[in-house]
Amino acid sequence: MQHRNPIKRRHHQLTEPLVMIMGTIDLKVGLGTLRIYGLMDSPERKFLEISMVSVNGPCSDESCQIIRKVVARLSKPADLSRYITLAVSGITVYLEREVFDSIDRGRSNVRAKVMRSGKVVVSGISIIT
């Protein structure tokens, strides 16, 4: 296969909503996806923030280091400069850049489940630094 000058240029769409059915939202995040359950169950749940925090890492002999972990909550971050914002049907999802890159580079299919209590459980993501 041979290509003339850089193959057709098009703006790379980083994120796009795919499906919104039965209270779930599917988002394309780079090369990965993010499926959110339960965010639309309640009208006051309009924001979802997914970010990284440093937590205690597993100790493997001399390497008992702090590792990065994903946390999510139903809120709007104070400092938006570190986040990529995705707005879908009145709901806004804030992904910290590192979270975005990890989903993208890891091609992860990440699930975020919003529980009735308001707690958000994120699964399927590996942090790529």
């Binding site: 296969m1 041979q2 290509h3 003339r4 000058n5 850089p6 193959i7 240029r9």
Partner: peptide
């Protein structure tokens, strides 16, 4: 067989 030419760094 698969070759791209005239590509700038961003391309």
């Amino acid at each position: 067989e698969d070759v791209h030419w005239g590509a700038m760094p961003a391309d």
